[in-house]
Design a protein around this nucleic acid. Structure first.
Lengths: 206, 206, 206, 206
DNA sequence: CATGAATGAGCTTTCATTCAT
DNA sequence: AATGAATGAAAGCTCATTCAT
């Protein structure tokens, strides 16, 4: 009971700090997101961050994990409300883009971490081999493979097609300026393009 | 004369510093790329960097411009060796991916800047409206439009298709781990996918 | 009764904390011996240390007193197993050096405190006037005086001779490297030297 | 020329910082002698200390070396103004104690460092094997050996006798309170004691 | 009696930048 | 044109201590 309560408080604080970290990353970016800035936004002392997290690296990594979990849950939940591969793919694309539109802060924070953080050996996170651990990539490949097996998708390399889809999704947030397009419309068009690209027979073997 | 000579020396120094900055960004990333680290790689004093560039921000921006110019020249030169839109598109994709493979350091530096640097108002570079100034995007759209006019590409929204292509290209560098694929093969597959997506009639009006 | 019991527990805790402090001082030295490090070795929280001791200074001083008491008891007990001044002196020297050899941790802790701690006015402990309170120095002087009265020691200044003896004893722990010598042998030689120095007639008046 | 001038300025600054470090160690002790406190006494910024010394450890070590060099020079110069071992010994003792009396600040600083600083592996400096590198100990042993060879000193173990002498010297600074004695008188008495201890025949072989 | 949570003060170190030379 | 010297500001982190529970 006591322990649970303590753990609860501790967990709540950690969540609060992670939330403040996300907010800070969105506000001023990775480089300026010092512990002092994060603490200010959480209305706590910097020492308290050090109390709950081993060091800055630890905070960033736990923050990253939280962001990955959140977005993956959001997207995969929406993806698997249907059974058919083509529909799943459409849902996947739509949910991925919708997440960016509805969670801009979280999305920016994710980007900031992935493209700024490095391991102790100076290997950037975005260059780290992912060893099939990205749940979204795995889900996407599964959908494509199933569609291919069922004769519904004609695709030479599932891996490349998955990358094309991921690239199209990731590009959405970089759209700005004169050519702006709403999430729904962008999703529809991308889905149409990908469907079309997999509709033609005769491209189903490497 | 004197002035020209001085300007020439000055320009050479600036190029040297920019080159060292690129190297530094590739080696240790944006966060650790302090003026001291850049100066060390250029074998000069940090004060000299401050002398040639207004401030750190200025250096980064000039470095970014140089990287953009270099890659655009590389890619567009290869793109326009042919006339036909379909071939130009293939060349564009191939050259874009080849640039990443042959200029890893420049490419990483580009990424590091775009995803880390911010304006004085803390607006990230990657969120900056580009106002049609990206020469690569402009070229890509021109090719797609020409193909569409010539009745060779069937594409609803040129803008979205351009983003899909850019996304697919940009994704190449993030490939690592168990699924690795060489640049040539990846280019071919992407080209085939995009061609296929634009081959089907009845999708040619916005 | 209640109070006695509480006092007993409290006393036991204080002893435990002091013991952990000694261990910590020996392990990592005065500078790094933070309350956190001491608490870790005592398997308690740092707050508990603050509860039992007024502040860090208080803990250090009580620790020092414990160390002084312990060593004085050890040495003086062995010293007074005999009656004759010359034997008492030999015992004193031997016990003093034996204490260092058999209680290295306590000895290092003593050193660390004496040479690091300072009063609130920044007066180092080792510079503090001792006001004849050092029981070992007092005992040593008594032995020398008694021997002198009995016509067995010829010594001009008892105070200086006492310092010489203390110096020789204190030096033992600083012996390291190529010239290492065991405690027993060192004791014997020092005793012989001191005896010899006091054996010669004609040096018995200040 | 330029280089020499620069080196000169740099060396002067380093000396100034080391001097301020010595002063700080005397004033407030090793524990509180932060770079900020040292900088304050040198009327410079803490960053300038970091500019001239690799880190705190480096500063402390260079300070220690300076102190050792200074005291050794002082003592050995006075020691070797005479030829005869007995006189050299008397000079050595007198100079050693005189140094403490005339350079109290330097002497305290030396103590503070030796008894507080530790290597990265937490080995205290005072426990470090000295491998015959202490110039004072070496000189002392040489004098004793020469006297022994010349039949002037009767001493079983030169090493132990050297330690006894060093102990007696080192003890001087710890004298305080009711029993205070001036340096000259203390030197004379110690010298007499040591001479007496080595005057008796029959103790010249281990 | 004992602890976890929390803080303000201080630490060492690095930063971008300035300035005299 | 180029540098060494210097600094204020800020970084991440640890400290001893307090307090509610």
């Amino acid at each position: 009971m006591e322990t649970n309560k303590n753990t609860f408080i501790q967990e709540a604080r950690k969540q609060q700090i992670i939330e403040a970290t996300i907010r800070t990353l969105g506000d001023i970016g990775y480089v300026k997101a010092s512990l002092a800035q994060i603490a200010k936004r959480a209305s706590i002392s910097t020492a308290l961050i050090s109390y709950h997290f081993a060091d800055r690296q630890d905070l960033i990594e736990q923050c990253l994990q939280a962001l990955i979990d959140q977005s993956a849950t959001y997207i995969l939940t929406k993806t698997y409300t249907v059974d058919e591969p083509a529909s799943q793919l459409a849902n996947f694309i739509e949910a991925s883009i919708a997440y960016q539109a509805t969670h801009p802060k979280e999305n920016v924070a994710l980007l900031e971490i992935v493209f700024n953080a490095r391991t102790v050996n100076d290997v950037p996170f975005y260059k780290l081999p992912d060893d099939g651990e990205d749940p979204l990539l795995k889900a996407l490949c599964n959908i494509l493979n199933k569609g291919k097996e069922q004769g519904k998708f004609y695709v030479t390399s599932v891996n490349v097609m998955a990358k094309v889809i991921q690239g199209a999704i990731g590009e959405y947030m970089l759209i700005g300026g004169p050519f702006s397009i709403d999430a729904e419309q962008y999703s529809e068009e991308v889905t149409k393009i990908i469907w079309t690209a997999m509709k033609v027979e005769g491209t189903n073997n490497a």
